[in-house]
């Protein structure tokens, strides 16, 4: 992606244009993505790349974990191939997963890749794309609990900093239309949502988890069109991020993307409006036991 596209002097007009262009680009990207999905499936059908037990074991472990980081996914892939005496190509993890995805697609499931806003590492999450009540029937969450989760998402998406305080969430529990939740029940629910990896919590403030963002991204984009901002660098939705302080610009960049983009630059400048970037530049965080890339 060319970051310099928007490296022009920002005027109101340009900012407007920029947003328009961004939206257009986003749409094009979505279309491209759709086309990509189809082509991969067609391709795999043509090539008849069959799923083997190594793939099935990988999928079963993904189902048990929900989300794994890239390093673990590589280790797991190797383990699954070795267990079933299948040839293992270390650099072909995405192909391996694509084989699974082509077979998962008819079930409205997918293993999707995304970045943690916290440390910038890549993760793989098993997402469910079904929009039905069938999956809800044995849900661990009651109707009013789901409603509160929805309200928490509202709070986070519409906030400035991508966070919701426990106080705000507790207050919104009073406005539930289904069945009110007591304070203690709400606190218990929030703990469960953190435990089940849907929310993260730090010092009484809640953010959307990597897993939740990976799974909900298309929905958040379409539901909160006006509120949602994408990262100027990686183009994914941004919650935990730094914001350009020039009011006419105001682009967002994920903290890990900031770290990578400004690494080694003496005087950081906004990639969109070229204004001075006044925030502290975080360190690039390497995944543990880094072997390549």
């Amino acid at each position: 992606m060319d970051y310099n596209d928007y490296n022009y002097i920002s005027t109101d007009y340009n900012a407007h244009n920029y947003r328009k262009k961004k939206k257009q680009q986003q749409q094009e990207e979505e279309e491209k993505e759709g086309a990509h999905c189809r082509s991969v499936t067609d391709q795999s059908r043509d090539m008849a790349r069959p799923m083997e037990d190594s793939h099935r074991r990988f999928l079963q472990t993904m189902m048990a974990n929900g989300i794994v980081d890239e390093q673990s996914a590589r280790t797991l892939c190797q383990y699954c191939c070795e267990t079933h005496n299948t040839q293992h190509t270390p650099d072909k993890l995405d192909d391996f997963i694509e084989t699974i995805n082509s077979k998962l697609q008819p079930m409205f499931m997918q293993i999707r890749k995304g970045m943690s806003e916290d440390n910038g590492h890549q993760f793989y999450a098993l997402v469910n794309m079904a929009e039905t009540d069938v999956t809800r029937m044995s849900s661990d969450y009651a109707d009013n609990e789901l409603e509160l989760f929805r309200k928490t998402m509202d709070l986070i998406v519409c906030s400035e900093n991508g966070k919701a305080s426990s106080t705000d969430i507790l207050n919104s529990a009073d406005t539930l239309t289904t069945k009110k939740l007591k304070k203690s029940e709400t606190e218990h629910l929030l703990n469960r949502l953190v435990h089940d990896k849907w929310l993260n919590e730090k010092r009484g403030e809640y953010t959307l988890s990597t897993r939740c963002i990976i799974e909900m991204e298309p929905y958040i984009r379409s539901m909160y069109q006006d509120q949602v901002k994408v990262c100027h660098i990686c183009r994914n939705i941004a919650f935990q991020c730094q914001i350009c302080e020039k009011p006419t610009c105001g682009i967002k960049i994920h903290n890990p993307c900031v770290a990578r983009y400004f690494k080694g630059r003496a005087e950081p400048r906004c990639p969109a409006c070229d204004d001075f970037w006044p925030h502290e530049i975080p360190e690039v965080r390497r995944p543990r036991s880094q072997s390549k890339r």
């Binding site: 929900g66 809800r136 849900s139 089940d196 909900m216 539901m223």
Partner: peptide, 19 residues
């Protein structure tokens, strides 16, 4: 298995609300 099913209903509701 991890609870992967939480969001299905919310998505259905979102799509519904949008419609």
């Amino acid at each position: 298995m991890e609870p992967t099913q939480l969001l299905g209903f919310i998505k259905a509701e979102m799509t519904q609300r949008k419609r």
